[in-house]
Amino acid sequence: MVILPAAAHSGLKFAALWLWTAYAVSAYGSGLGFGALPLIAVLVLHASPAQVAETA
């Protein structure tokens, strides 16, 4: 078992929090891209569902 000094332990907590925050922001962005943007295209731009589903 490795016992870390308090400063190293604090740094690990900060790194874990940073990683968790980055993951949460990424997941939110993915949800926005897959959910809200097509909905905005249909409601605001009056695009048909077929136009939204179309890939370039």
Rank of each mutant, 00 (worst) to 15 (best):
F34C: 02
K13W: 03
A36I: 10
V2W: 02
L12P: 00
A16M: 11
A36P: 00
V25R: 06
L19G: 01
P49Y: 03
A22L: 14
H46L: 06
T21R: 15
A47S: 12
I40T: 06
G33W: 14
V2A: 07
W18K: 14
A36W: 09
A41S: 13
E54I: 01
S48E: 11
M1I: 06
A36Q: 07
S48F: 04
L39I: 03
V25N: 01
L19P: 00
A24P: 00
A24S: 10
E54L: 09
V44R: 06
L17H: 05
A56D: 12
S48L: 08
G31I: 01
T55K: 09
S48Y: 02
V25M: 07
K13Q: 14
L32K: 10
Y28M: 07
H46D: 12
F14D: 10
W18N: 07
V25P: 00
A27W: 09
A7R: 12
I40G: 03
A27P: 01
L45D: 14
I3H: 04
G11N: 14
L39Q: 08
G29F: 05
L43S: 07
I3W: 03
S30R: 10
L37F: 14
T55A: 07
A50V: 06
G33Y: 12
Q51S: 10
L17F: 08
H9F: 09
L32A: 11
V2Y: 03
S48Q: 06
A15C: 09
T21W: 12
L19F: 06
H9A: 13
A24L: 11
L43R: 13
G11C: 04
G33C: 06
A6V: 12
A53C: 10
G33E: 14
A22K: 09
L17C: 06
A22W: 05
Q51F: 07
A27F: 11
E54T: 08
A7I: 10
V52K: 02
V52A: 01
S30F: 09
S30E: 09
L17A: 15
A22I: 03
A16C: 05
